[in-house]
Write a protein that binds this DNA or RNA. Sequence first.
DNA 1: TCCATTCTGTTTGGATCCAATAGAGAAAGA
DNA 2: TCTTTCTCTATTGGATCCAAACAGAATGGA
Lengths: 228, 228
Amino acid sequence: MISADNSSIVAALRKRIIDGHYAPGERLAEIPVAEALGVSRTPVRLAFRTLEQEGLLQRVGKRALAVRVFSPADVQCAIEVRGVLEGLAARLLAERGLDPKTREVLLDCLHEGEAIVGAAQLTEESIGAWSEVNTRFHAAIVDADDRRVIADAIARNNHLPFASADSIIIDRAELDQAHQRLRIAQLHHRLVFDALEKGEAARVEMLMREHAQIGLRYDNLLIPERHE
Amino acid sequence: MISADNSSIVAALRKRIIDGHYAPGERLAEIPVAEALGVSRTPVRLAFRTLEQEGLLQRVGKRALAVRVFSPADVQCAIEVRGVLEGLAARLLAERGLDPKTREVLLDCLHEGEAIVGAAQLTEESIGAWSEVNTRFHAAIVDADDRRVIADAIARNNHLPFASADSIIIDRAELDQAHQRLRIAQLHHRLVFDALEKGEAARVEMLMREHAQIGLRYDNLLIPERHE
DNA sequence: TCCATTCTGTTTGGATCCAATAGAGAAAGA
DNA sequence: TCTTTCTCTATTGGATCCAAACAGAATGGA
């Protein structure tokens, strides 16, 4: 039984899809889902509509809905999309000029991140804290009235299976690997901030584009062997 | 009265919003809309949900829905978003290599476009024809299984008010201005194809990014004065 | 034996009814 | 006169009922 308000039904279904309770490709019918959630068909239909629009559900044939199957190419694409969109947002911010308020937020993030990453040891909690700082950093760059369309596009793209980069980092990485990753990410934050402040639009776009993908390309984050 | 199938209700509402029948900022209630369309509230609710997700409607306060107001910054952003996404799609295509089928389609578009743009005079019909060719060119670059996520992101972004670049060109431009624009666009198509064939990924991304915006930045398309 | 047609059951889509609630407006108090 | 609170109404959200469409099975004919 779910708190019978539609947005929580959407959230519940989204969660079930993302964590595999409903398998990719599995067909979803209204009645069983409604019964499982303890509500009537109407709100489930609404929720299906939302999730279809988000791209988590997919029409099969003319009427049936199924959980969308994401190929590796899909995930790769979604990572790239996130990269170009965040890069774009950063560039527009650089072109328009860094306002004092955003600058303040970014600086706070930098300092807090420095403290976390600079610690000798990473803990579960400090990873959580960094993830929060990271989210704030990205939000500061993306969320503004004059870039709302980009923020929307990113949000929609993020409904894709990797859902939240943060959870991947926390779930998948061993602690020492995570530490190395966070150091890289923190460095990126510094570089991005630096370029933003100097108004180096093209450079900040490139940096942000690269950085936006770091939490997601988790396969590539291991430090490669020294080759000399 | 509308053919009582939900997707046509969505389409009808979308049309009314885009062509201003419902003004930006205007609040939409279910009952009057349902009566206007001659259907009950249920399908209207579904349609509202879709349009809200698309970004054409926007929640005001806690329950009310209103037609979204697009600022100039929004439109600018949407153009930029389209640019980076199409650029990304083109780059991925270049990296993966141009398959024979896509190559064929693009070549056809180039030749047909050449014929239209090369004509002495442009007509309403030839603009329409070029618009169709242009659409096919872009689709060939964007629509493929391995870039579906990008295509989706572009499609969602295009629900924004400018809706279709083609209609803007046709509606707003004088014929001779249009001719000049189409020549530029055709040149872009050639450059993009060339870069694609050579596998020049970074270059094709840049070219496509620029080109994707040409139909949209209609203010910038006038040929500047010669400066020497 | 295989194909086509029909029949039936399952599922989606639409209409209507009922309940909850947000928001406006009125009334009362400061 | 301004602010706060209360009430009432308009509107949204959920449940249920009904109709239509689709899929699959079964039966009949070739």
